[in-house]
Design a protein around this nucleic acid. Structure first.
Lengths: 351, 351
DNA sequence: ATGAAAGCGCTAACAG
DNA sequence: CTGTTAGCGCTTTCAT
């Protein structure tokens, strides 16, 4: 069906070796021959099989990418960065998503290894304790994590703790004293932990009491009554919410609006991720921003350096590469008077 | 480095054929042998090379996916659908993005063909006149388009013309008479054309004058003065905008807000795509919704049917599969009194 | 400058 | 039930 190098050789009247050379090292073959061969290649619409090549040579120029989901633009943004560089440098991407499911993670890694990918770029729930990553280490398969917050493994991320700390300090600077952190239900992730740590530190430093993260079901249409109760009831109801990611922040805002709360008048909102889309919201979402696309690019570059560089196993740069974060003030944060947080917050012009 | 079937054979003391059988047809080998072989496989951490397999067998179980960009969630949503089914059915995805660049499209197709993908799922700017697709037809490489609106090629989409028609009718039903369509600058796409057609039909049918689509730069931070002039100036300024996609709608809304226009009070907005995220906006974005995820799923199923089914070249179902669209009323549309469109619109409770 | 031949990792006849 | 062998499409010595 599909023509092979043999067909070309026969058509051109040369050996397959010559055809191979004509393709891979044109200068080593007689110009006239070269021309003939090329004509045959065109005539047959021949396309060298990557399979055959890869089997022969060592390099597959294939990189595996494993992401939790594409429903969250954070990962789509990272992937954009990766894809851009991959395309430039002649590498192919094999993509698999896991929905944070360990079984699917295992399966993805397995599949990708069977395809002899030269390396892996991935995001997992919790990197430190992930057995599959230990396995990769043992097997010597190169990988770089994105977003995972760990010093034990090759990774690219922001300083989640510090970033969250600064974000919450900003809330405090705006006069908020009762601040709650919200997280998704599956949020046993390393970065969610770090973000909560930063939240807690900022609170304590201001002499405020940090609370455990409140879990919110991402997919529910409405906020659950119990969550809503937490957010609205009496005495020391929170005036600001720190959401562990932007998508969650958006879901929460919708829930609050449906419950007739106004943002930021009745509740200030701070997200995390810095989704490009957040800026398009009304009001623009305040967020602790990670450079998602750049994280993807950096992960790619680190991986490629190791893949091509070869042997500098460690001792090079630190395992964890930390990229700078930034604060997007947005307009979902209102300053409030410090007088009395139990009454509905008042709008301040300073916001 | 990586162990091969030979290593396993040597380690187990059997031939490579037996090892191969132990893997692919366990029931055909002696249980004791099987056990030994499996032990060796584990001991060596052997993983059969997909390369070797593919080279031998006909099937690569590899599908290429070519998307314009992942920055627009429309495509990420489609990809989710594809990926879900691919994972279930044991296929691998090779992903490439093009940024609507023809050269990159060519390159992506080329690369994917070299990898002997069994089929292609893709979205291009304009399917009807796309020379590369003709080439695919000629070469007999199976493909299915997503979102492209054409009857000439295998595709899955909504009826863009009809959907847009209904959307604009909805605007008209809300009392709007001066309605403008906005499109992205690179919007020479087949679906943008169909959507404009639907817009024009709805307008004409209501005795209103359709205007050419107004081009808006997607990436600019602010709306250009000339665009803004179109939207706000005097006599018959539009009271509603039909945006050719949701992302554009969001950008436009930001621009309008910066220009101190209120939505929907001063301007009603209707998007197209039905991004999941649109529901999270405030106000929730009215949109003509395509079932993006399902489009991905359907494209996958059609492709796989052809890939595995084999020979029913045509005569089966029609080339273009049209999935049902829906209207999401959202809250970016206000009803206006029909009296006098030249004065600022008034809020109506009916919205 | 070109060709013959080996071999990459694997599967599939075909023998035994 | 197991082994031998050929060959998938290609690159790469090694001769010529």
């Amino acid at each position: 069906m599909t023509p092979t190098i043999k067909d070309v050789a026969a058509h051109a009247g040369f050996s397959i070796a010559t055809v191979s050379r004509a393709i891979n090292a044109p200068h080593t073959v007689n110009p006239v021959t070269l021309d003939t061969v090329r004509r045959s290649i065109d005539a047959l619409d021949f396309r060298p099989s990557a399979l055959g090549r890869q089997l022969r040579g060592e390099r597959t120029r294939l990189i595996g990418v494993i992401l939790p989901t594409l429903a969250n633009p954070v990962f789509a943004e990272c992937l954009q960065g990766i894809d851009e560089l991959a395309a430039t440098q002649g590498y192919r991407l094999m993509l698999m998503t896991t929905q944070y499911d360990t079984e699917r993670e295992r399966h993805a890694i397995e599949t990708l290894r069977e395809h002899r990918v030269e390396g892996l770029i991935l995001t997992v729930a919790d990197a430190d304790t992930h057995p599959l990553l230990d396995e990769l280490d043992r097997a010597g398969l190169l990988y770089v994590l994105m977003h995972n917050d760990t010093v034990r493994r090759p990774s690219v991320s922001v300083d989640n703790r510090l970033a969250a700390y600064e974000g919450v300090r900003m809330l405090i600077a705006h006069g908020h004293r009762s601040i709650l952190m919200l997280a998704g239900t599956l949020a046993a992730s390393d970065r969610a932990r770090q973000r909560h740590l930063g939240y807690a530190q900022a609170m304590q430093q201001a002499g405020l009491a940090p609370a455990p993260a409140l879990e919110v079901d991402f997919n529910a249409d409405e906020l659950s009554p119990s969550v809503l109760a937490h957010l609205t009831r009496g005495a020391n109801r929170p005036t600001a919410l720190f959401c562990s990611n932007d998508l969650l922040a958006m879901v929460v805002m919708r829930g609050l609006r449906r419950a007739r709360l106004q943002i930021p008048h009745d509740m200030s909102i701070l997200g995390f991720d810095g989704l490009a889309m957040g800026e398009l919201l009304s009001p623009p979402l305040a967020s602790v921003c990670a450079p998602n696309r750049e994280i993807g690019c950096a992960a790619w570059q680190r991986l490629l350096a190791r893949v091509t560089g070869g042997y500098e196993t460690f001792s090079e740069t630190p395992l964890a590469l930390t990229l700078p974060h930034s604060l997007r003030e947005g307009a979902t944060i209102a300053a409030i008077s410090n007088r009395n947080e139990t009454t509905p917050a008042r709008i301040s012009v300073r916001a």
